[in-house]
Nucleic acid binder design. Structure first.
Length: 458
RNA sequence: GCGGUCGUAGCUCAGCUGGUUAGAGCACUGGUUUGUGGUGCCGGGGGUCGUGGGUUCGAGCCCCAUCGUCCGCCCCA
């Protein structure tokens, strides 16, 4: 084969041992919290049938789905003359599978397929990569991990409240101290468009006001005017989305504004209920804010909507979620409501990295390296090595034949905190040289003493 | 899908208005008193200047194309 350049696809990344240590630290921290709240792990295939995914994320979303070319003579099945087909019409004919775009839709499919074996409410978490054919940017990759926690089969708003607790606990455990959990409700957004008398334009309306903090009210106004809203609509809208004050006072004002919209009032009620549930729990760092301009995941969310933003770094949202009432209906099982949240692990990684919040312990694997001067020393040391491992101490022995200098360098490069040196003298006395790589200090200790010392360290 | 930016050693970059053998720091590697890393000192290897065309006596530098990067828009974790 001709020489080819070693490369990986755009928007994907390799992870080295140091990065994997840190990534696993994030996953482990999240998992621990998820389990604590009663969630169980599942996984779904990398590929789904293309028609499982299409139509769930809107037109823009559909275009970002990575499709998998059929095997074999895929053109044979096309049937029509190729030249007559547009790409969009061609792709479902030559690609029947696609890489998953998120974890929520595959989860809905899972629930329907396995409905007879799960008992409701079903609480699951799932940590797997997803793929989007998006243009890469800061904090945006084509392959990235989502960490989803969802519950289906429970309409209780206690779930929503608990998700806020999960966000707070997980992100706090990771060392973040300043972040907001924004909450809104799709029904409130519906109420607003009802009051304006433009229920059919809810998507345009919400997409525009979602950009409020980015482009300001003037920007939103410009966008709305271009979407067919008139100035009196905007005058009416202005006091609503610019509502300020604490959550309670916002809700009070909103109640008056949306008085004529039953749906809107219901949305307000749901927020009330969630906030009320929350008073029974203590949050460590999260600020819970009602944000009427929050409009995520409109293609399937029907109730509460969440989004998490850190104030410690410039980064898009590091998590989001909401309630969806109809997702399983698309797969033939109606009447099942679900609610869930997602953590963007790769973005969280970038934030923790930027803030220097990874501790060294997330990275080191081996705790002690045994360095030997020759073959006899190696043989002598194997029982020491064996004992250390039996005590659950991560230990390795550098096979003989390499200079001590090189072995120490290995320990240093690998961030191994302790080294044991075994030579003639050590074998004679049974006292091994035990070196702390951090301080550089070393002393002679028996294997037993070293073991004890290492056990008290961890 | 649209707009901009950049592309020189493994990494971060320098290279003046085009002019002989393309440089630095870090990394790597060897040595530096006996069996000792991270700090010091001395030496060494490594680049067809993203790729393909073109202009020119001559191109890392100019032009075109192409691929890739990073950033913004759309959208989103």
């Amino acid at each position: 084969m001709a020489n080819m350049k070693a490369a990986i696809p755009k928007g994907t990344r390799d992870f080295n041992p140091k990065q994997m240590g840190r990534r696993n630290y994030i996953f482990d921290t999240l998992k621990k919290v998820f389990k604590k709240y009663g969630y169980q792990e599942i996984q779904t295939p990398t590929m789904e049938n293309l028609d499982t995914l299409t139509g769930k994320y809107g037109d823009e979303g559909d275009q970002l789905i990575f499709k998998v070319l059929n095997s074999g003579d895929y053109l044979a099945k096309v049937g029509t003359a190729l030249a007559d087909l547009k790409s969009q019409a061609l792709s479902p004919k030559i690609a029947e599978k696609a890489l998953r775009y998120d974890l929520t839709v595959p989860f809905a499919r899972y629930v329907v397929m396995h409905q007879n074996e799960i008992s409701l409410p079903f609480k699951r978490f799932q940590i797997q990569p997803v793929w989007r054919a998006d243009r890469p940017q800061r904090g945006r990759y084509r392959e990235f991990y989502q960490c989803d926690v969802d519950v289906v089969g429970s309409a209780s708003l206690l779930n929503e409240a608990e998700f806020i607790c999960i966000y707070d606990e997980a992100l706090s455990n990771l060392g973040l101290t300043d972040f907001s959990i924004k909450i809104n409700n799709r029904k409130i957004l519906t109420g607003i468009s009802d009051v304006l008398g433009k229920p059919e334009s809810i998507i345009d309306l919400t997409v525009a006001i979602d950009k409020l903090d980015k482009i300001g009210f003037d920007g939103v106004q410009t966008e709305l005017l271009s979407k067919g809203f008139n100035t009196s609509d905007i005058e009416q809208l202005k006091p609503i989305i610019l509502l300020s004050g604490n959550n309670a006072s916002k809700l009070e004002s909103l109640k008056l504004i949306l008085a004529t919209s039953p749906t809107g009032l219901q949305g307000i009620n749901e927020i009330y209920t969630v906030l009320n549930y929350l008073t029974n729990f203590t949050l460590q760092n999260a600020k819970v804010e009602l944000d009427l301009s929050l409009a995520r995941g409109l293609n399937y969310y029907t109730g509460c909507i969440f989004e998490v933003k850190t104030h410690q770094a410039t980064m898009g949202s590091i998590g989001g979620g909401g309630r969806y009432d109809n997702l399983t209906e698309m797969f033939g099982q109606a009447g099942l409501t679900g609610v869930g949240i997602s953590f963007g692990a790769d973005r969280i990684y970038d934030v923790l990295d930027e803030l220097n919040l990874f501790s060294a312990s997330a990275e080191q694997s081996t705790q002690v390296l045994i360095c030997v001067l020759g073959q006899y020393e190696e043989t002598y040391s194997l029982s020491v090595l064996n004992h250390l491992r039996k005590q659950n101490i991560a230990a390795e022995l550098y096979p003989f034949g390499t200079k001590i200098k090189k072995q120490m360098q290995y320990a240093n490069d690998k961030n191994i905190p302790y080294a044991i040196i075994v030579g003639n003298e050590e074998m004679k006395t049974g006292k091994l040289t035990f070196k702390n790589m951090l301080t550089g200090q070393q002393q002679m200790m028996s294997a037993i003493e070293i073991e004890k010392h290492l056990l008290t360290q961890s």
